[in-house]
Amino acid sequence: MTTFTLNGEDYEFAGAEDTPLLWVLRDHAGLTGTKFGCGAGLCGSCTVHIDGRARRACIIPVGAVADKQVTTIEGLARDGLHPLQQAWLEEDVAQCGYCQAGQIMAAADWLERTPNPSHEDIEKQQTPLCRCGTYARIRKAIFRAADIRREGAVTLVEPDGQEVST
């Protein structure tokens, strides 16, 4: 029996402790927003937060999250939309959309610690794979989300990545 906090609520899993968190979320907790892409920690589709840090749920045995806080895409925003979700809509990032929950969960962690990201920051930290090729819009959306988080600071991001303060 593994007990942890899932999107703010207590959750109990009765199965084997070596079951990857991903499959507990998807098959048992019914939270299917976290996606399966590789099962080997390589693609980032399954990114969730464990005690606030982005982790790849396909390679984390559920036993390792005992008594921890697990947040999935469904629980990212307490009410309304997270700035990243908002920015993702504004930039209309998604194509097939399959990778996007993982993209947002990954960015939601590191953007917290890098509130004013550069292109280099994004290239270093935003590692989930997108097969459809939405990277150009992911960049823009991360810049946009940083602006939304800074509230009030109005910065336009030009197509060449130049920031223009107004």
């Binding site: 895409i73 469904e74 990243l84 993702w88 209309d92 929950a101």
Partner: peptide
């Protein structure tokens, strides 16, 4: 489906 996608 943009909003459904970003909210999982």
């Amino acid at each position: 489906d943009a909003e459904a996608i970003v909210t999982g």
